[in-house]
């Protein structure tokens, strides 16, 4: 195991144990090891002895903020939908947070999904998480039975091969282009903060697609989503997706058909992405959760880029700033609005 991860794991356990023992939190949300290489399992520690199961490495790709509302709710005393909240402080939850996860918690607080007082955020500066699909591509998609992580490389083993891979080569695209690896809100800190990163081409991948012509872009979009099986792993892995009834489940009117159809799949992806506009922090959980390797993060990242360009807004950085689609300015750009007498472009 890498010494960096070992250090962080030890510290996480220490902090979690303290919080649980002192009864500051009723549960601690972290990661434990999965049964398959390169897949970590989100884990809720409820007793001090559980903390020994907590682990930290470069495969903690899902966003723990996603679990917060449900875990918090599960700790409240049972009551019927319209009953008032019980008096006195409610049990709290401790949670690990990297830059993007903490930004999602900011969004959740703004949208009244969680209460700041009920979460104890243990901040960790992210070194970038590893994309398991990239690792698989490095070994020609042979089966991987073991991955040993060292500080700057991965040792990947399978039947009949061992390969050393430079860690940074297989870090997720969203982490590579991330400029906010440090938590934005936190109560405890593990390790040192990096103080921010500089990235030369933050939206390089989006720019590449924008530079294509319109028919190429359509082809790219169609191809990207063609393997979608509509399992909704992307939606469910997303901390922004908490609607009691998702638009795909609406039946009157039915916006999106339920089976695999190229239009319905396209509509699902367009609307899912658009629902994240101005809220998505580019944490990459959707892409990491997808079993079919669809890069749906490119859709939300385009919206991220436009929000920055048009409204100068980045989600989750400040708790007192309204989300871009819940506010407006009188001088917002409107060059897309059709003016009388203006001619369309010949495409």
């Amino acid at each position: 195991m890498s010494t960096i991860n070992e250090k962080i794991t030890t510290e996480i356990r220490k902090v979690a144990k303290e919080l649980l023992e002192k009864d500051e939190v009723a549960a601690f949300l972290g990661y434990t090891e999965g049964t398959v290489p390169m897949v970590m399992k989100p884990f809720v520690a409820r007793r001090p002895e559980d903390v020994e199961k907590l682990f930290w490495n470069s495969f903690c790709v899902l966003n723990l903020a996603n679990y917060l509302p449900l875990v918090l709710q599960s700790l409240e005393p049972p009551r019927r939908p319209n009953d008032p909240l019980p008096e006195g402080p409610l049990p709290r939850v401790g949670v690990l947070a990297t830059g993007c996860w903490s930004r999602n918690m900011v969004v959740q607080i703004k949208e009244n999904q969680i209460e700041r007082e009920r979460v104890i955020i243990v901040g960790i500066s992210s070194r970038g998480m590893v994309d398991r699909k990239k690792v698989q591509a490095q070994v020609d998609h042979l089966e991987i039975t073991e991955v040993i992580e060292e500080d700057h490389k991965l040792i990947v083993k399978g039947p009949g091969f061992t390969k050393e891979i430079n860690r940074w080569d297989v870090v997720r695209d969203n982490c590579k282009s991330c400029v906010h690896p440090d938590p934005v809100i936190y109560d405890e800190v593990i390790g040192d903060f990096s103080g921010g990163r500089q990235v030369p081409k933050r939206f390089g991948d989006i720019q590449e697609i924008e530079d294509m012509d319109i028919e190429e872009r359509w082809k790219w979009f169609q191809e990207e989503i063609s393997s979608c099986i509509r399992c909704y792993a992307c939606r469910n892995a997303c901390p922004l997706c908490y609607c009691p009834t998702c638009f795909v489940d609406d039946s009157r009117p039915q916006w999106v058909g339920k089976s695999i159809d190229k239009t319905d799949t396209a509509l699902f992806h367009i609307l899912r992405a658009f629902h994240c506009a101005g809220r998505c922090t580019d944490c990459g959980a959707c892409e990491s959760a997808c079993p079919m390797g669809i890069r749906m993060r490119l859709f939300t990242k385009k919206l991220y880029k436009d929000c920055m360009e048009l409204y100068g807004f980045e989600p989750g950085l400040r708790i007192d700033e309204p989300l871009p689609l819940t506010t407006f300015k009188l001088e917002d750009p409107q060059d897309y609005i059709l003016q009388q007498g203006q001619k369309g472009e010949e495409k």
Binding site: P42, R230, C231, Y232, A289
Partner: peptide, 24 residues
Amino acid sequence: DPCLNCGTCTFLCPTCYCFDIQDE
């Protein structure tokens, strides 16, 4: 606890055969 409640397991599973019916 860790489950996302997505349909990956059921949709990839060869023996998960449950269905729904709808008119389009």
